[in-house]
């Protein structure tokens, strides 16, 4: 989609609530997802993100509120009449059909002519870079291949929105990272709105145009990966997306001069000798090294601050060996720039 084209709203949630018995899985949620964007719903399990996805697909009906697709109310519209397709967590390929028949299922149901079906299936196989597996059965494919076939099957109807429910969860790390890049590339190629559900914050940061962070049936923050990471709105976002040191009350007052809670990323803290001076644009706090964990690319220090509170400090291992020669029990000074403090709302 061109940058100039005015972007319309693909999916709009207005005050949507979903109640399962006594459990409120989604709680008065409002959200807008723009046409053509790669949108991630990020949150721990049970935070309501998958329920939101299933309500878009039509497998669940909202208890209250409304969901629209291109401004058309979706209440009462069955899954098979929605211009939305899903890539399932377990892929849900049909084991009794060949890969070709799996991918062509949507067209077969729509009674597309055989020649067209064959042509489109082949195009889809090319799109997911598996041109030669059409005659195989799903059981003869690897996990990564199945994942791509599930994607091809969901894309063949060219839906307005593609829903992906933790599709990379079952893959090993290397394959997952490769698929992250590929999914993003495919999304750009086809220009379809992707709504991607994940509990993996790194995955969400890597692929998304925008992220909604879910917690307990509500959205804590919506923003670009950069906004979410650099300016977390709540203590939950600060700690769920990446790692953060979050301080409140008395400790916040001692460290920053204000009782209002603030978060600071571990890589924005720096370790120095106890007597080193604090630059004018920075603040500092003395403490004792409690733990040192060598992580290859960097080293993580856990510091007990004098007067209470802990700080996680991550230092890049630019020189050989640990960046700082601090060991367990060393006295150190933690230094940070004032503008890397982020004020967050109370929970």
């Amino acid at each position: 989609m061109d940058a100039e084209t005015p972007r319309s709203i693909a999916i709009r949630f207005s005050g949507v609530t979903k109640q399962f018995g006594t459990v409120r899985a989604v709680d008065d949620l409002s959200l807008e997802i723009v046409d053509g964007e790669f949108f991630s719903m990020l949150g721990p399990s049970g935070s309501g993100k998958t329920t939101c996805l299933r309500m878009i697909a039509g497998f669940e009906q909202p208890t209250a509120g409304s969901i629209t697709l291109h401004d058309k109310e979706m209440a009462g519209v069955p899954p098979y009449e929605r211009d939305v397709n899903t890539v399932f967590q377990d892929y849900a390929l049909f084991p009794h059909m060949t890969v070709e028949d799996n991918i062509g299922y949507g067209l077969m149901i729509r009674k597309a002519p055989k020649a067209e079906r064959h042509k489109r299936v082949q195009e889809m196989l090319e799109l997911v870079r598996l041109p030669d597996v059409g005659k195989r059965k799903p059981s003869q494919l690897s996990g990564g291949q199945r994942q791509r076939i599930a994607l091809a099957r969901a894309l063949i109807n060219h839906p307005a929105v593609l829903l992906l429910d933790e599709p990379l969860g079952a893959l090993d790390l290397k394959l997952r990272q490769q698929m992250q890049v590929e999914l993003k590339t495919i999304q750009r190629e086809v220009g379809i709105t992707f709504i991607f559900v994940t509990h993996d914050q790194e995955e969400a940061l890597t692929m998304s145009d925008r992220i909604a962070v879910f917690n307990a049936g509500r959205i804590e923050q919506v923003g670009t990966p950069n906004e979410i990471y650099e300016n977390p709105a709540t203590p939950f976002v600060a700690t769920f997306v990446g790692t953060s040191n979050v301080y409140a009350g008395e400790v916040a007052l001692r460290l920053s001069g204000s009782e209002q809670p603030f978060a600071i990323r571990p890589e924005k803290l720096r370790l120095a000798l106890p007597d080193d001076p604090t630059p004018p644009d920075s603040r500092s706090a003395p403490g004792i090294v409690h733990d040192v964990v060598y992580l290859g690319m960097n080293t993580r220090f856990l510091i007990d601050l004098d007067g209470g509170g802990e700080a996680i400090v991550i230092a890049q291992n630019i020189e050989h060996g640990a960046a700082v020669s601090a060991v367990r029990g060393s006295r150190v000074r933690v230094i940070w720039k004032q503008d890397s403090e982020r004020r967050v709302q109370h929970d």
């Binding site: 098979y80 397709n85 899903t86 849900a92 049909f94 009794h96 299922y105």
Partner: peptide
């Protein structure tokens, strides 16, 4: 043994309950 999301996948791809029964449930 069969994936419960298979029926949902069929409906998601445009099949009615009857078509899902004929093409997915019965053959599996």
């Amino acid at each position: 043994r069969s994936s419960p999301s298979m029926n949902e996948a069929s409906m998601d791809l445009g099949a009615t309950a009857l078509q899902t029964f004929r093409y997915i449930i019965l053959p599996t």
